[in-house]
């Protein structure tokens, strides 16, 4: 393995450890202060504060954060396997569940896009 590649990997590991650390601190804080928030969200808040106060630059964590977000699919695939325990539910209610998901998703997309579009057009008309 060449040197540049090794340094890249080393840096990635450090960034991942930093993000894991922030998550752990977030979990601890939420427990101590009895906040009804997941540790990850408290960690997200801490990181935003660190960016805003200038202690950290987003570029410092770009590699690790990018990897975690890009491979997020892998982290929730295990939860999808809960299907193993819900075979009976899917056979009896599957089509109704799909009907709810399909129609509701269509309505959500319509409502969101039309609202944002309306606000944008309104602002375009009312601003110089």
């Amino acid at each position: 393995m060449n040197r540049a590649r090794f340094r890249h990997l080393f840096r990635l590991c450090l960034e991942l450890i930093a993000l894991l650390g922030l998550y752990a601190i977030g979990c601890q804080l939420a427990t101590w202060l009895h906040w009804p928030l997941p540790g990850g969200v408290v960690g997200l808040g801490l990181l935003l504060v660190a960016f805003a106060s200038g202690w950290l630059k987003p570029a410092t964590l770009q590699l690790g954060a990018g990897l975690l977000m890009a491979e997020m699919l892998l982290f929730f695939i295990p939860a999808l396997m809960s299907l193993l325990d819900y075979g009976a539910l899917l056979r009896s209610d599957g089509w109704r569940i799909l009907l709810v998901i399909g129609s509701s998703t269509l309505l959500v997309m319509l409502a969101t896009a039309l609202t944002v579009e309306a606000v944008c057009r309104w602002r375009a008309r009312h601003e110089p």
Binding site: L16, L20, Y23, L46, L48, L61, L68, M69, M72
Partner: peptide
């Protein structure tokens, strides 16, 4: 998923 949530700050 926890640290991935933290990463959303970026």
């Amino acid at each position: 998923l926890g640290p991935a949530t933290v990463a959303f700050a970026v």
